[in-house]
């Protein structure tokens, strides 16, 4: 399935490195990354592919990202891409 990972929080060194590392460790492939920084706040949207060979379930991955995010003062969500597709495409 295709995932959308969103990261929102105060900008600092190592955000992308941390998220990429978690995804890589779990065999989740990053497809593209989009980010901007507004008033020192970091907004990033990452698309990723989670195949049959992923090392943990989406729910477990969500937990790991949430915990790691909180350590860095970030709000990280990982969601199935379809919720955005259906809402914004006719």
């Amino acid at each position: 399935m295709k995932l959308v990972v969103t990261i929102v929080g105060k900008d600092r060194v190592g955000i992308i490195a941390m998220v990429s590392q978690v995804l890589a460790e779990n065999n989740v492939n990053i497809l593209n990354i989009n980010q901007n920084i507004m008033d020192g706040y970091f907004n990033m949207v990452m698309r990723a592919e989670m195949g049959e060979d992923a090392r943990m379930s989406l729910v477990d991955l969500q937990k790991v990202l949430k915990e790691k995010g909180e350590e860095m003062g970030l709000d990280i969500k990982a969601q199935h891409q379809d919720i955005f597709n259906v809402m914004h495409n006719v």
């Binding site: 959308v4 901007n36 907004n43 949207v45 955005f84 809402m87 914004h88 495409n89």
Partner: peptide, 12 residues
């Protein structure tokens, strides 16, 4: 194509 704004809007 979904934009970053669309995604942030949904989550907001």
């Amino acid at each position: 194509m979904i934009t970053i704004d669309d995604i942030l809007e949904t989550n907001r």
